[in-house]
Computed example of a mutant assay.
Amino acid sequence: MGNPADETVTSALQLGCDGVRPPGSALYSLLGRLRSALRSPLHARTVWQLRQQIEHQTSLIRQLETDLVRAEIFERASAAARMGVWQCELPSEQLTWSNGSYDLFGFQRGSEVARSEVLKSYSEESLYRLQRVRSNAIETGSGFALEAEIRPPGVEKRWIRISAAVERRNGEPIRLFGIKQDITEERKALDGMRYLAEHDAMTGLANRTQFQNRLAEVCELGGPGGALMLIDLDGFKRVNDTLGHAVGDECLIEFARRLSVVCQSAELIARIGGDEFAALFGPATDLQRIESIAQRLSTAAQEPMNCSGRVFRVGASIGFAFTEEETPTALFARADHALYAAKAAIGATVFRGSSHQPPD
Protein backbone atom coordinates (compact mmCIF):
# COMPACT_ATOMS: atom_id res chain seq x y z
CA MET A 1 0.00 0.00 0.00
CA GLY A 2 1.37 3.46 -0.97
CA ASN A 3 2.15 6.35 1.30
CA PRO A 4 -1.06 8.42 1.88
CA ALA A 5 0.92 11.61 1.79
CA ASP A 6 2.39 10.68 -1.58
CA GLU A 7 -1.08 9.85 -2.88
CA THR A 8 -2.39 13.30 -1.80
CA VAL A 9 0.46 15.06 -3.55
CA THR A 10 0.09 12.92 -6.66
CA SER A 11 -3.68 13.61 -6.80
CA ALA A 12 -3.13 17.35 -6.55
CA LEU A 13 -0.50 17.24 -9.28
CA GLN A 14 -2.71 15.08 -11.45
CA LEU A 15 -5.47 17.74 -11.09
CA GLY A 16 -3.16 20.36 -12.49
CA CYS A 17 -1.56 18.15 -15.14
CA ASP A 18 -4.92 17.07 -16.57
CA GLY A 19 -5.58 20.65 -17.54
CA VAL A 20 -8.46 21.26 -15.08
CA ARG A 21 -8.30 24.90 -13.96
CA PRO A 22 -8.53 25.07 -10.15
CA PRO A 23 -10.43 28.12 -8.92
CA GLY A 24 -8.18 30.79 -7.46
CA SER A 25 -4.56 31.79 -7.98
CA ALA A 26 -3.70 30.42 -4.55
CA LEU A 27 -4.16 26.86 -5.82
CA TYR A 28 -1.85 27.55 -8.78
CA SER A 29 0.78 28.72 -6.33
CA LEU A 30 0.18 25.63 -4.25
CA LEU A 31 0.64 23.32 -7.27
CA GLY A 32 3.90 25.09 -8.06
CA ARG A 33 5.12 24.36 -4.59
CA LEU A 34 4.08 20.72 -4.95
CA ARG A 35 6.11 20.35 -8.16
CA SER A 36 9.13 21.89 -6.47
CA ALA A 37 8.70 19.62 -3.48
CA LEU A 38 8.67 16.51 -5.66
CA ARG A 39 11.99 17.46 -7.19
CA SER A 40 13.56 17.13 -3.74
CA PRO A 41 13.28 14.46 -1.04
CA LEU A 42 9.85 14.63 0.66
CA HIS A 43 9.80 15.39 4.35
CA ALA A 44 6.80 14.54 6.50
CA ARG A 45 6.45 18.13 7.70
CA THR A 46 6.46 19.47 4.14
CA VAL A 47 3.77 17.04 3.10
CA TRP A 48 1.70 17.91 6.17
CA GLN A 49 1.93 21.63 5.40
CA LEU A 50 0.90 21.04 1.81
CA ARG A 51 -2.02 18.90 2.89
CA GLN A 52 -3.17 21.63 5.32
CA GLN A 53 -3.08 24.22 2.57
CA ILE A 54 -5.06 21.99 0.24
CA GLU A 55 -7.70 21.40 2.89
CA HIS A 56 -7.86 25.13 3.61
CA GLN A 57 -8.36 25.99 -0.06
CA THR A 58 -10.98 23.25 -0.38
CA SER A 59 -12.83 24.76 2.57
CA LEU A 60 -12.73 28.20 0.94
CA ILE A 61 -14.10 26.78 -2.31
CA ARG A 62 -16.95 25.09 -0.47
CA GLN A 63 -17.74 28.31 1.38
CA LEU A 64 -17.77 30.20 -1.92
CA GLU A 65 -20.13 27.64 -3.41
CA THR A 66 -22.41 27.98 -0.36
CA ASP A 67 -22.40 31.78 -0.64
CA LEU A 68 -23.26 31.57 -4.33
CA VAL A 69 -26.14 29.21 -3.60
CA ARG A 70 -27.39 31.52 -0.87
CA ALA A 71 -27.16 34.52 -3.19
CA GLU A 72 -29.15 32.66 -5.84
CA ILE A 73 -31.77 31.67 -3.25
CA PHE A 74 -32.01 35.29 -2.10
CA GLU A 75 -32.45 36.51 -5.67
CA ARG A 76 -35.23 34.00 -6.32
CA ALA A 77 -36.94 34.64 -2.99
CA SER A 78 -36.80 38.42 -3.30
CA ALA A 79 -38.12 38.30 -6.87
CA ALA A 80 -40.95 36.01 -5.75
CA ALA A 81 -41.74 38.45 -2.93
CA ARG A 82 -41.72 41.29 -5.49
CA MET A 83 -38.91 43.11 -3.78
CA GLY A 84 -35.36 44.05 -4.69
CA VAL A 85 -32.14 45.39 -3.22
CA TRP A 86 -30.71 48.64 -4.61
CA GLN A 87 -27.65 50.82 -4.18
CA CYS A 88 -26.86 54.30 -5.47
CA GLU A 89 -23.30 55.65 -5.41
CA LEU A 90 -22.81 59.30 -4.48
CA PRO A 91 -22.24 61.67 -6.12
CA SER A 92 -22.06 59.71 -9.39
CA GLU A 93 -25.66 58.39 -8.99
CA GLN A 94 -24.54 55.01 -10.39
CA LEU A 95 -27.14 52.34 -9.63
CA THR A 96 -26.67 48.71 -8.64
CA TRP A 97 -29.84 46.62 -8.58
CA SER A 98 -30.83 43.05 -7.79
CA ASN A 99 -33.17 41.27 -10.19
CA GLY A 100 -36.20 42.16 -8.08
CA SER A 101 -35.57 45.89 -8.56
CA TYR A 102 -35.32 45.47 -12.34
CA ASP A 103 -38.64 43.61 -12.32
CA LEU A 104 -40.41 46.31 -10.30
CA PHE A 105 -39.57 49.01 -12.84
CA GLY A 106 -39.89 46.85 -15.95
CA PHE A 107 -36.22 47.11 -16.99
CA GLN A 108 -34.25 44.24 -18.48
CA ARG A 109 -32.34 42.35 -15.80
CA GLY A 110 -28.66 43.17 -15.69
CA SER A 111 -28.97 46.17 -18.00
CA GLU A 112 -27.31 49.48 -17.21
CA VAL A 113 -29.96 51.83 -15.87
CA ALA A 114 -29.60 55.59 -15.48
CA ARG A 115 -31.30 57.14 -12.47
CA SER A 116 -32.74 59.88 -14.67
CA GLU A 117 -34.65 57.20 -16.61
CA VAL A 118 -35.90 55.55 -13.42
CA LEU A 119 -37.29 58.84 -12.10
CA LYS A 120 -39.56 59.10 -15.16
CA SER A 121 -41.54 56.16 -13.78
CA TYR A 122 -42.67 58.05 -10.67
CA SER A 123 -45.92 60.00 -10.52
CA GLU A 124 -45.48 63.74 -10.13
CA GLU A 125 -46.51 63.78 -6.47
CA SER A 126 -44.42 60.74 -5.55
CA LEU A 127 -41.37 62.15 -7.33
CA TYR A 128 -41.67 65.39 -5.40
CA ARG A 129 -41.85 63.55 -2.06
CA LEU A 130 -38.98 61.22 -3.03
CA GLN A 131 -36.67 64.08 -3.96
CA ARG A 132 -37.50 65.91 -0.74
CA VAL A 133 -36.89 63.00 1.67
CA ARG A 134 -33.84 61.82 -0.28
CA SER A 135 -32.17 65.23 -0.11
CA ASN A 136 -32.88 65.41 3.60
CA ALA A 137 -31.44 61.93 4.14
CA ILE A 138 -28.21 62.77 2.31
CA GLU A 139 -27.88 66.02 4.23
CA THR A 140 -28.58 64.59 7.69
CA GLY A 141 -27.31 61.04 7.25
CA SER A 142 -30.62 59.56 8.39
CA GLY A 143 -32.49 56.93 6.45
CA PHE A 144 -36.04 57.18 5.17
CA ALA A 145 -39.08 55.12 4.26
CA LEU A 146 -41.49 56.18 1.54
CA GLU A 147 -44.49 54.78 -0.31
CA ALA A 148 -44.51 55.90 -3.93
CA GLU A 149 -46.65 55.45 -7.04
CA ILE A 150 -44.82 54.37 -10.18
CA ARG A 151 -46.00 53.82 -13.75
CA PRO A 152 -43.26 51.89 -15.56
CA PRO A 153 -43.43 51.77 -19.39
CA GLY A 154 -45.66 48.91 -20.50
CA VAL A 155 -46.50 47.98 -16.90
CA GLU A 156 -49.64 48.71 -14.89
CA LYS A 157 -49.51 51.41 -12.25
CA ARG A 158 -48.16 50.06 -8.99
CA TRP A 159 -47.16 51.19 -5.51
CA ILE A 160 -43.77 50.48 -3.95
CA ARG A 161 -42.33 50.96 -0.49
CA ILE A 162 -38.76 52.31 -0.49
CA SER A 163 -36.55 51.78 2.55
CA ALA A 164 -33.19 53.56 2.48
CA ALA A 165 -30.07 54.04 4.59
CA VAL A 166 -27.10 56.34 4.06
CA GLU A 167 -23.48 55.19 4.24
CA ARG A 168 -20.96 57.89 5.18
CA ARG A 169 -17.17 57.99 5.17
CA ASN A 170 -15.30 60.67 7.06
CA GLY A 171 -18.57 62.46 7.56
CA GLU A 172 -19.40 62.54 3.84
CA PRO A 173 -22.25 60.51 2.26
CA ILE A 174 -20.88 57.99 -0.23
CA ARG A 175 -23.92 55.86 -1.07
CA LEU A 176 -27.59 55.19 -0.49
CA PHE A 177 -28.83 51.61 -0.26
CA GLY A 178 -31.92 49.72 0.76
CA ILE A 179 -34.93 47.71 -0.40
CA LYS A 180 -37.84 48.39 -2.75
CA GLN A 181 -40.97 46.29 -2.39
CA ASP A 182 -44.17 46.05 -4.41
CA ILE A 183 -47.10 46.92 -2.11
CA THR A 184 -49.76 47.31 -4.81
CA GLU A 185 -52.02 44.59 -3.42
CA GLU A 186 -51.59 45.95 0.09
CA ARG A 187 -52.63 49.42 -1.07
CA LYS A 188 -55.64 48.02 -2.93
CA ALA A 189 -56.77 46.24 0.22
CA LEU A 190 -56.33 49.39 2.31
CA ASP A 191 -58.14 51.51 -0.27
CA GLY A 192 -60.96 48.97 -0.31
CA MET A 193 -61.29 49.09 3.47
CA ARG A 194 -61.16 52.89 3.42
CA TYR A 195 -63.86 52.99 0.76
CA LEU A 196 -66.11 50.74 2.83
CA ALA A 197 -65.48 52.92 5.88
CA GLU A 198 -66.36 56.14 4.04
CA HIS A 199 -69.14 55.15 1.63
CA ASP A 200 -72.69 53.94 1.84
CA ALA A 201 -72.77 50.31 0.79
CA MET A 202 -76.14 50.56 -0.98
CA THR A 203 -75.87 53.77 -2.99
CA GLY A 204 -72.10 54.22 -3.26
CA LEU A 205 -72.41 57.81 -2.02
CA ALA A 206 -70.33 59.13 0.85
CA ASN A 207 -71.65 57.97 4.24
CA ARG A 208 -72.44 60.08 7.30
CA THR A 209 -68.91 59.71 8.72
CA GLN A 210 -67.25 61.11 5.61
CA PHE A 211 -69.90 63.83 5.38
CA GLN A 212 -69.30 64.98 8.97
CA ASN A 213 -65.53 65.04 8.43
CA ARG A 214 -65.88 67.13 5.28
CA LEU A 215 -68.42 69.45 6.90
CA ALA A 216 -65.96 70.07 9.74
CA GLU A 217 -63.22 70.89 7.23
CA VAL A 218 -65.47 73.38 5.45
CA CYS A 219 -66.34 75.13 8.71
CA GLU A 220 -62.69 75.20 9.83
CA LEU A 221 -61.83 77.26 6.76
CA GLY A 222 -64.11 79.99 8.12
CA GLY A 223 -65.88 82.75 6.27
CA PRO A 224 -68.88 82.61 3.92
CA GLY A 225 -69.05 81.12 0.47
CA GLY A 226 -70.18 77.51 0.43
CA ALA A 227 -73.58 75.92 0.90
CA LEU A 228 -75.06 72.87 2.59
CA MET A 229 -78.12 71.25 1.03
CA LEU A 230 -80.21 68.63 2.84
CA ILE A 231 -82.73 66.43 0.97
CA ASP A 232 -85.42 64.17 2.37
CA LEU A 233 -87.54 61.86 0.21
CA ASP A 234 -91.29 62.36 0.51
CA GLY A 235 -93.50 59.28 0.41
CA PHE A 236 -90.64 56.82 0.85
CA LYS A 237 -92.14 55.18 3.96
CA ARG A 238 -95.26 54.37 1.93
CA VAL A 239 -93.09 52.64 -0.69
CA ASN A 240 -91.46 50.48 1.95
CA ASP A 241 -94.75 49.66 3.64
CA THR A 242 -96.73 48.81 0.50
CA LEU A 243 -94.17 47.54 -2.00
CA GLY A 244 -91.56 46.08 0.31
CA HIS A 245 -88.03 46.93 1.36
CA ALA A 246 -86.46 45.45 -1.77
CA VAL A 247 -88.35 47.93 -3.94
CA GLY A 248 -87.53 50.64 -1.40
CA ASP A 249 -83.83 49.89 -1.75
CA GLU A 250 -84.08 50.16 -5.55
CA CYS A 251 -85.84 53.48 -5.10
CA LEU A 252 -82.98 54.82 -2.94
CA ILE A 253 -80.40 53.68 -5.46
CA GLU A 254 -82.24 55.34 -8.34
CA PHE A 255 -82.69 58.58 -6.42
CA ALA A 256 -78.98 58.58 -5.51
CA ARG A 257 -78.21 58.32 -9.22
CA ARG A 258 -80.49 61.27 -10.05
CA LEU A 259 -79.04 63.27 -7.16
CA SER A 260 -75.49 62.65 -8.44
CA VAL A 261 -76.45 63.86 -11.93
CA VAL A 262 -78.16 67.06 -10.79
CA CYS A 263 -75.58 67.88 -8.10
CA GLN A 264 -72.48 66.90 -10.04
CA SER A 265 -70.89 70.28 -9.21
CA ALA A 266 -71.05 69.51 -5.47
CA GLU A 267 -67.84 68.81 -3.57
CA LEU A 268 -69.49 65.94 -1.70
CA ILE A 269 -72.79 64.05 -1.97
CA ALA A 270 -73.73 61.76 0.91
CA ARG A 271 -76.46 59.53 2.24
CA ILE A 272 -76.71 60.51 5.90
CA GLY A 273 -79.77 58.49 6.95
CA GLY A 274 -82.41 56.09 5.72
CA ASP A 275 -83.96 58.41 3.10
CA GLU A 276 -81.91 61.51 3.97
CA PHE A 277 -79.21 62.93 1.73
CA ALA A 278 -76.82 65.90 1.79
CA ALA A 279 -74.71 67.84 -0.68
CA LEU A 280 -71.86 70.25 0.06
CA PHE A 281 -71.09 73.01 -2.44
CA GLY A 282 -67.93 75.10 -2.71
CA PRO A 283 -67.38 78.86 -2.32
CA ALA A 284 -68.31 79.60 -5.95
CA THR A 285 -71.97 78.75 -5.22
CA ASP A 286 -74.38 81.70 -5.09
CA LEU A 287 -78.06 81.92 -4.22
CA GLN A 288 -79.29 81.81 -7.83
CA ARG A 289 -77.22 78.73 -8.60
CA ILE A 290 -78.20 76.77 -5.50
CA GLU A 291 -81.89 77.54 -6.01
CA SER A 292 -81.66 76.38 -9.62
CA ILE A 293 -80.02 73.12 -8.54
CA ALA A 294 -82.64 72.58 -5.84
CA GLN A 295 -85.53 73.14 -8.29
CA ARG A 296 -84.03 70.74 -10.85
CA LEU A 297 -83.50 68.15 -8.13
CA SER A 298 -87.11 68.48 -6.97
CA THR A 299 -88.29 67.93 -10.56
CA ALA A 300 -85.98 64.91 -11.00
CA ALA A 301 -87.22 63.34 -7.76
CA GLN A 302 -90.85 63.51 -8.96
CA GLU A 303 -90.14 61.65 -12.20
CA PRO A 304 -91.73 58.15 -12.17
CA MET A 305 -89.74 55.41 -10.45
CA ASN A 306 -89.69 51.99 -12.15
CA CYS A 307 -88.39 49.43 -9.65
CA SER A 308 -88.88 45.68 -10.07
CA GLY A 309 -91.64 46.35 -12.57
CA ARG A 310 -93.56 48.62 -10.18
CA VAL A 311 -94.07 52.22 -11.27
CA PHE A 312 -94.66 54.87 -8.60
CA ARG A 313 -93.72 58.43 -7.67
CA VAL A 314 -91.99 60.05 -4.72
CA GLY A 315 -91.02 63.63 -4.02
CA ALA A 316 -88.25 65.49 -2.23
CA SER A 317 -88.15 68.25 0.36
CA ILE A 318 -85.01 70.38 0.16
CA GLY A 319 -83.48 72.88 2.54
CA PHE A 320 -80.17 74.70 2.27
CA ALA A 321 -78.02 77.20 4.13
CA PHE A 322 -74.91 79.15 3.20
CA THR A 323 -71.77 78.67 5.27
CA GLU A 324 -70.66 81.34 7.70
CA GLU A 325 -68.18 81.53 10.55
CA GLU A 326 -69.92 78.90 12.65
CA THR A 327 -69.62 75.35 13.91
CA PRO A 328 -70.66 72.34 11.79
CA THR A 329 -73.53 71.76 14.21
CA ALA A 330 -74.84 75.31 13.76
CA LEU A 331 -74.64 75.12 9.95
CA PHE A 332 -76.38 71.73 9.89
CA ALA A 333 -79.09 73.04 12.22
CA ARG A 334 -79.86 75.95 9.89
CA ALA A 335 -80.10 73.71 6.82
CA ASP A 336 -82.17 71.19 8.79
CA HIS A 337 -84.54 73.92 9.92
CA ALA A 338 -84.99 74.93 6.27
CA LEU A 339 -85.67 71.32 5.33
CA TYR A 340 -88.45 70.95 7.87
CA ALA A 341 -89.89 74.32 6.83
CA ALA A 342 -90.10 72.96 3.27
CA LYS A 343 -91.89 69.83 4.53
CA ALA A 344 -94.35 71.92 6.51
CA ALA A 345 -95.11 74.35 3.68
CA ILE A 346 -98.04 73.22 1.58
CA GLY A 347 -96.91 72.55 -1.98
CA ALA A 348 -93.34 73.72 -1.29
CA THR A 349 -90.35 71.49 -1.72
CA VAL A 350 -87.48 73.99 -1.51
CA PHE A 351 -86.71 76.31 1.37
CA ARG A 352 -83.66 78.43 2.19
CA GLY A 353 -82.33 78.30 5.75
CA SER A 354 -82.40 81.47 7.91
CA SER A 355 -82.25 85.05 6.73
CA HIS A 356 -78.49 85.02 6.14
CA GLN A 357 -77.52 86.01 2.63
CA PRO A 358 -74.61 84.58 0.63
CA PRO A 359 -71.79 86.99 -0.27
CA ASP A 360 -72.10 89.12 -3.41
Rank of each mutant, 00 (worst) to 15 (best):
T327W: 03
H337F: 07
R310I: 08
I318R: 13
Q288E: 08
T349M: 07
A300D: 11
A330H: 08
C307D: 00
P328H: 05
E324V: 07
T299I: 10
K343V: 13
R289L: 03
F332P: 01
T349V: 04
T349H: 13
S292T: 11
Q295A: 15
G347P: 02
S354L: 13
F322C: 11
E325N: 05
F351C: 15
T329K: 07
S354G: 08
F312A: 06
I290S: 01
E326K: 05
R310Y: 05
F332M: 14
Y340P: 06
K343G: 08
G347A: 12
L339K: 14
A344N: 13
F312V: 04
R296P: 04
V314T: 13
P304N: 13
A342Y: 12
G347L: 08
G347K: 09
R310D: 03
R296H: 12
G353H: 11
F312N: 03
R296G: 05
S355N: 14
L331E: 00
I346P: 08
G309P: 06
F332D: 00
I346T: 15
G347I: 06
S292Y: 05
V350M: 08
A335P: 07
Q288M: 03
T329I: 15
P304E: 06
I290N: 01
A341F: 00
L297S: 11
E303C: 01
F322E: 00
R296S: 13
I293R: 01
Q295S: 14
T327H: 03
G309R: 08
I290H: 01
A348R: 15
S298M: 04
S317A: 14
S355H: 13
N306Q: 11
I290V: 06
Q288A: 04
H337V: 09
Q288R: 07
R289Y: 02
L297C: 10
H337Q: 15
V314N: 05
A321L: 06
C307E: 04
T329F: 14
R352H: 09
T327C: 02
L339A: 07
I346H: 10
A348H: 14
R289M: 04
T299A: 10
A342L: 07
E291I: 01
I293W: 03
F320L: 15
P304I: 06
S292K: 11
A333S: 14
K343N: 11
R289P: 01
V314A: 06
A342I: 06
T327K: 03
D336Y: 11
R289A: 08
A338E: 12
I293H: 00
T327Y: 03
G315V: 02
A316Q: 12
Y340Q: 10
G309K: 09
T323E: 03
M305T: 00
S354E: 12
M305A: 02
R310E: 09
R334Q: 09
I290E: 01
F351R: 15
S355A: 11
G309W: 07
L339I: 13
A333P: 01
A341C: 10
E303M: 06
A316I: 11
R313Y: 02
A301P: 04
A301I: 02
Q288G: 00
F351G: 00
T349E: 09
Q295D: 15
A345M: 11
R289C: 00
A341K: 15
F351K: 14
F322M: 13
A344H: 13
D336P: 05
I346Y: 03
A301Q: 06
G347W: 04
A294V: 00
C307W: 02
G319D: 12
V350D: 09
A341V: 07
Q288C: 01
I346L: 13
